[in-house]
Design a protein around this nucleic acid. Structure first.
Ligand SMILES: [Mn+2]
Ligand SMILES: [Mn+2]
Ligand SMILES: [Mn+2]
Ligand SMILES: [Mn+2]
Lengths: 221, 221
DNA sequence: CGACAAAGTTTGATGAGTCAAACTAGAGAG
DNA sequence: CTCTCTAGTTTGACTCATCAAACTTTGTCG
């Protein structure tokens, strides 16, 4: 369908718009995420606007049209099902699958995608805890609050991590804090901007608020 | 590594050179196989020659250098492991996997490839009976003779089909003549340019010499 | 307000890969 | 030995995606 470049822009705009309070992506960040110069991003946005995939006007914010949204969700579905497959079926390391899926997501056909979905038993979240859009494009709501927002003493279950950076993922895996893990938030030290967490049966881990903000959990009775 | 286009040319040159008595590919056929005009193929061959991947001189035949051979075998390994995976793991239809693999072969990394190989138990042939090059690039010899070359009454085992065209593959699958099947060549009619074959436990099939030449089998005691 | 930095845009250029169409080399037919 | 057909080559143009660098807009701060 759309070229690899176009798909990457759509996915990036979707992600940026979602994490921004205005619901719009900025050109500078978009360019950084896609890995191009801002000039390149500007000209691509014009093309995407001409194709009715994004809403864009000079010096204004960037957002997806309904058509662009649908395309972005489709790419997200491919990306997340592939990640799940790489971890579940091929036993690939949790911290490398994002990069692998980043390339494979553009090469997989609807037929293979649905076969993958069937083989995996129609999973609803990927290995990082992100929801997998269904075939119709519906995405489950993301749940959980950042670890740093819990009271000291809270018993929690990790449900999601919100960063795909390799070093971060390796830290999470090394200390047994992957989604699904039960843990206790022992201490929240505002002054030190750090927390201490103990995953069930494992060693206590300290981390700064910056990192703690990227590990999402739910309260567990 | 190499671009998708370059990989497709290398694979095509390898295939054409192998099926030609001179061991060289012709420009017209190459262009047709890759799906471009002859002018485009010519200019690409010059680039590949500059990159020391193919041997080429004006109006002469085209063949791969050692470096090009190695690259082609690597692509073939990816292609065939992917086909095997699509059939074995995802249960995709035998007749569609070639086209799917044609795109996926360019997007798969060495890490994923080796994981796939491990998951499949290091298979030595793909679903069409073609040998899968090993990690070092060694390819097993293809065995078997065309069905049309056997004596009437021969008990055989189908080992390979040498065409990926969808209609042909569907014909083969429909009549139960996939690699691995035991069969008897009942009749070879030179005048009619046709043969009759009975796969074990299934109905007898008639086919012309053209089709019979693309189904390879081994004698079975 | 006015200055300035940050964000965004424009322009001109490049490389990869492609096509159409004009052209050329070489093999075989007579 | 020439004629003709086919395979192969060349040229000029085009699209897509990109960059560097010059330029413009906008928001913020003294
Ligand atoms: Mn991911
Ligand atoms: Mn991608
Ligand atoms: Mn194949
Ligand atoms: Mn291919």
């Amino acid at each position: 369908m759309a070229s690899e470049a176009v798909e990457n822009y759509l996915k990036a705009i979707d992600a940026l718009a979602h994490e921004s309070p205005t619901g719009e992506a900025g050109m500078k960040r978009l360019a950084t995420v896609v890995g191009v110069t801002t000039g390149t991003a500007t000209s691509m946005c014009k093309k995407l606007a001409a194709a009715r995939l994004v809403k864009y006007e000079r010096f204004g914010g960037i957002s997806l049209t309904a058509k662009g949204q649908a395309a972005a969700r489709d790419i997200l579905r491919r990306h997340r099902l592939i990640e799940t497959f790489l971890v579940e079926t091929l036993k690939l390391d949790w911290s490398v699958v994002h990069a692998e899926a980043e390339r494979l997501e553009h090469a997989i056909s609807p037929v293979v995608l649905e076969a993958l979905d069937r083989h995996l038993g129609h999973p609803s979240v990927d290995p990082h805890g992100d929801p997998i859009p269904d075939g119709a494009g519906a995405v489950g709501e993301t749940s959980g609050r950042a670890l740093g927002e819990f009271e000291a003493g809270s018993r929690v279950r990790i449900v999601r991590v919100s960063d795909q950076e390799k070093g971060f993922l390796e830290f999470v895996a090394r200390h047994g804090l992957k989604p699904g893990t039960a843990a206790v938030v022992n201490q929240v030290d505002r002054a030190a901007q750090a927390i201490r967490v103990t995953p069930d049966g494992l060693a206590t881990v300290s981390m700064g608020f910056g990192v703690a903000a990227k590990i999402m959990a739910e309260s567990r009775g």
